[in-house]
Structure formats: C-alpha cells, structure tokens
C-alpha cells in the first residue's frame, strides 16, 4: 500500500483503539482520582462486561442488534453492581489502604477469572455486531490531471468501527455533563479534591466511594460491550486493558480527566501510527519505551500538577 493511504488506515485504527481505551481508562481514572487506590481487578470488570454481552446476546437471539442493545444497558449495570458490592464487602473494610487494596484486588482478580473459566469456559466467544458494513475509503492524489480520487486496495473501515468511535465520544460527553452538572457528580468531585472536608460537610464518603467504584467498573464494562463485536469475549482478556488503562491514567496525570482523554488519544494513535514505520514488534517496543520516557521527563503526567 502507498504511504498516504497506509497512514490513513493506521490512524483510523488508532482512533478505534483510543476510543475503547478512553472508556476503560476513564473508569480507572475516576476510581484512582477519587479513592487513590490501584484496582488490579479493573481489567476483570472489563472482561465481565464482554462475557455478559455474550450471555445476553446468546440468550435473546433474534437480530444481533437486539442483544447488543440490551447488553449495552444490562452489562454495565450488572458489573457496576458487582463492583459496588465488592467495595462494601472488601475495600471498605481495609480502609482503602494502598498496599492491602493491591492484595485484595489481586484476590478479586483470581476469583473473577476462575469463576468465569468454570461457567463461561476457556474459549474465545464472538458476539455479532449489530451492523457491520465494509466501507471502502477514497484517497486523493495529485497527478497530471489535477486532483484525482482513487480507491486504494485495502483502504477501508467498517461501519461498526465508526460507531465505536462515535459511541465513545457520546459517553465521554455524557460523563462530562454528569460530573459537572449533577449533584452526584459535584459530590464526587468534592470527595476527590478533599475527602476530609467533604466528610465534614456531611458527604457520605463511604457511599460515594461505592458509587465511584461501581461507576468505574461500569465504564470498563461499557467499553467491553462496545469492543466485543470486534474482539471476542475470553476469560483472560482483562490483563491488556488493565495495563493500558493504568498507563493512560498516569500519563494523563493523576486525577485529571481531560489528561486521561488526551493520553488515551495519544497512546491509541501512536500505537497505530508507529506501526506504519517499523516492524510490528519493534513498533511496540518503541511505543512502550516512549510512554515510559514521557513519565521520566514529566513525572506528574501530561496534565497533572507538579507535586511540591
């Protein structure tokens, strides 16, 4: 493929990766920002969302759009509930101590994975996309006859992938409105900025934490429902999103939601675009190393405030 169309294809793919990443990372960012704990089980909430999407769409049958639409609502709600309950049962009782939370959430990771393996099984299971047309894309080239439109071999995207990008943007806007325009959002942000003061003003911090933990997990599950028609549900699929989301949150700057969005976009896009120039594994080596170097030279993250 020519360089131009190749770059365009890679950018489109990068945008799809970034869209999924931004939802997963937003969930983690909210949890991390408000509760200051590393939730190692976050990737498992993502996996649960994908697995539930498979169950819902298989149980309903009929046109794939029906199952998908129902899964879009049911999976995040169910996963959010599971997370909120586990927060009440476990995290609350260990006072959100950073070290103990790591051990506790690793324990949760084991439990969720093994339970999924025993019920859902070890196979990768696909969920049919509600719609999935291949859209060939044009490219413009200057030649003797002026600007020409051509249809390069292989340059295409599917309607579903475009939908994923659009859906991620919609969710982001909705989340933004929720956090800035609603009372619950305000309480969450207040708790994030200073939980002690919030408590003094009568904010039920414990309940807020459970809601936040549930919301974070629900966002991860939502990302998973969106991704599962492209990838497949598999009981080990949570590891990669966890690491990526974790990285995005830190690169963005702890507690900065705009930073998370920018970082997700940057990492997703660079993942796509660097692959144009290097062989795949080398591209990943370079991308990973660059991410580390961003932090080395800007330890507080892109949008974080320098700690003094």
């Amino acid at each position: 493929m020519e360089f131009g169309p190749h770059l365009m294809l890679a950018s489109l793919e990068g945008a799809v990766i970034a869209s999924i990443l931004v939802l997963t990372a937003m969930g983690l960012s909210i949890v991390f920002g408000v509760m200051r704990v590393v939730n190692v089980a976050h990737g498992e909430f993502f996996m649960l969302g994908a697995v539930l999407a498979w169950y819902v769409s298989t149980a309903l049958g009929g046109h794939p759009a029906i199952g998908f639409a129902v899964a879009l609502i049911v999976a995040p709600l169910a996963v959010g509930l599971v997370a909120a309950v586990s927060d009440q049962l476990i995290l609350k009782r260990i006072n959100y101590d950073p070290d103990r939370t790591i051990v506790g959430t690793i324990g949760m990771l084991f439990i969720i994975q093994q339970t999924t393996l025993m019920t859902f099984g070890p196979e990768a299971r696909p969920v049919e996309a509600p719609f999935n047309q291949r859209l060939a894309l044009p490219w413009f080239e200057f030649s003797e006859g002026g600007l020409q439109m051509i249809w390069p071999w292989g340059l295409s995207i599917t309607s579903y992938k475009l939908f994923v990008i659009f859906a991620a943007l919609t969710v982001l806007v909705a989340l933004w409105l929720f956090l800035t325009r609603t009372k619950i959002g305000l309480i969450m942000r207040a708790t994030q900025q200073d939980s002690e003061t919030a408590k003094a003003f009568g904010v039920p911090v414990g309940t807020v934490y459970s809601c936040v933990f549930g919301l974070g997990a629900a966002l991860a599950a939502l990302g998973a429902v969106l991704v599962v028609p492209i990838q497949q549900a598999h009981y080990l699929m949570g590891a990669d999103p966890l690491l990526m989301a974790f990285t995005v949150v830190i690169i963005g700057g702890l507690g900065s939601l705009p930073g998370t969005v920018i970082a997700a976009f940057l990492i997703g896009m660079s993942d796509g675009i660097i692959s144009v120039f290097f062989s795949p594994t080398l591209a990943q080596i370079i991308a990973t190393f660059l991410v580390a170097m961003i932090l080395v030279f800007r330890p507080q993250g892109l949008m974080g405030k320098a700690e003094t």
Binding site: M1, P5, L9, D240, G272, S275, P280
Partner: peptide, 19 residues
Amino acid sequence: IAIPPTETSFTRYFPSIPR
C-alpha cells in the same frame, strides 16, 4: 509479517502485504 503476541487488533499491519 511478524505480529507481536500481545496484539489484539491487526488491520494496521495488513497494508504491509505486497500487492
């Protein structure tokens, strides 16, 4: 075309397939 084993999306590698 060698794909890293951790990869989960592939479209961006296909343009390297010679015509």
